[in-house]
């Protein structure tokens, strides 16, 4: 327990140092106003206003100070070019991305537990070899490519049959309706991105469950249960599954990190207004302030996820808290 919070404190310090490095780094990429200067019809006064507003004439360390002040007291302040408040848009983006990421992680865990358990239960069966091969392929598929292929298939299917099963871009239709219709519409939009995003996690989680399941199946207490005459179903579902899926909790934090990586690609491809697309746009316009806000929010989410999994593991496995 103390270890968990010690690590959290360390991470916060590391994160603080990282914001300094990255702020100075991004500011050094080039003229932050290069983009806007190249536009015709921008007046000298407007430029000067922007420079004054963001203190761009001051040394970097002062700029960093202003940024830190805005971070702490001003909800990240405003973006570089248009002076729009950052937090409303960023929090909307976070909501979108969390929907996708959590749905993908839950899907990955559910599928992986079923596949991993069955593969371990029927070790060396056709199912075992088949899913092993499938997970190897899952590791080898570039997510962005899979996304495009699914888009091609979806559109071709729609053109051939006129039936729209899934949408290939955005988060909702304009005429989504309300209540149940809205929910169905949202799911139609989310299925493809979530599916694509979860492929790699399904592959790695199912291997993980299979390995720990094998260990449990061959352990003494399972042998004891069997000797007592407990039926196979109870052994599998009550005695083995619980212990075998426990270690999966430890990799959820890391896995969600990978999923956040994936959203940068997936949201760009599926035009979803989430964190990934936000980052992509901020980096392309060299908007230091939006980028920094993105970094802080993303790493805060990651820290929180790691903290939750650490604590969760302590709750689920009493041995850890000793």
């Amino acid at each position: 327990m103390r270890f968990v919070f010690q690590r959290l404190a360390f991470s916060l310090v590391v994160l603080f140092v990282a914001t300094i490095i990255i702020f100075f780094g991004i500011s050094a990429i080039g003229d932050p106003l290069g983009e806007i200067r190249s536009q015709p019809g921008i007046s000298q006064e407007a430029l000067q206003r922007l420079i004054d507003k963001k203190h761009l004439d001051d040394p970097l360390i002062i700029q960093y100070g202003y940024w830190l002040r805005d971070l702490l007291f001003n909800q990240f302040g405003t973006d570089l070019l248009f002076d729009r408040p950052i937090w409303p848009e960023l929090s909307r983006a976070l909501g979108t991305t969390l929907q996708v990421v959590l749905a993908a992680e839950v899907l990955a865990i559910l599928v992986a537990v079923v596949i991993g358990t069955l593969a371990a239960r029927y070790q060396y069966s056709l199912f075992d070899y088949g899913t092993t091969l499938a997970s190897f392929i899952g590791y080898a598929i570039p997510v962005f490519w899979l996304a495009l292929i699914l888009q091609i298939l979806t559109v071709n299917f729609y053109e051939a049959t006129g039936i729209r099963i899934f949408y290939i871009s955005g988060l909702s239709s304009d005429d989504a309706g309300t209540g149940f219709a809205w929910l169905v519409d949202r799911i139609q939009h989310l299925v493809l991105p979530v599916l694509v995003l979860s492929i790699a996690s399904i592959a790695s989680h199912s291997r993980y469950v299979r390995a720990s399941m094998l260990e449990v199946i061959n352990s003494d207490y399972v042998r004891t249960a069997r000797a007592k005459g407990v039926n196979e179903r109870t052994i599998l579902l009550r005695h083995s599954l619980r212990n075998a899926t426990l270690p999966l909790v430890t990799v959820i934090g890391v896995s969600i990190g990978h999923l956040f990586n994936g959203t940068i690609l997936i949201e760009t491809i599926f035009s979803m207004p989430g964190m990934g697309l936000y980052f992509f746009n901020a980096l392309n316009t060299r908007d230091t302030y939006s980028l920094m806000a993105w970094l802080v929010v993303t790493s805060a989410v990651m820290l929180l996820m790691n903290l939750i999994t650490d604590l969760l593991y302590g709750v689920l496995d009493p041995r850890i808290n000793k």
């Binding site: 994160l15 990282a18 890391v254 990190g257 990586n261 940068i264 980052f279 993303t298 790493s299 990651m302």
Partner: peptide, 8 residues
């Protein structure tokens, strides 16, 4: 590296 997305 664990708390910042590597791709970013």
């Amino acid at each position: 590296v664990l708390i910042l997305p590597g791709l970013a």
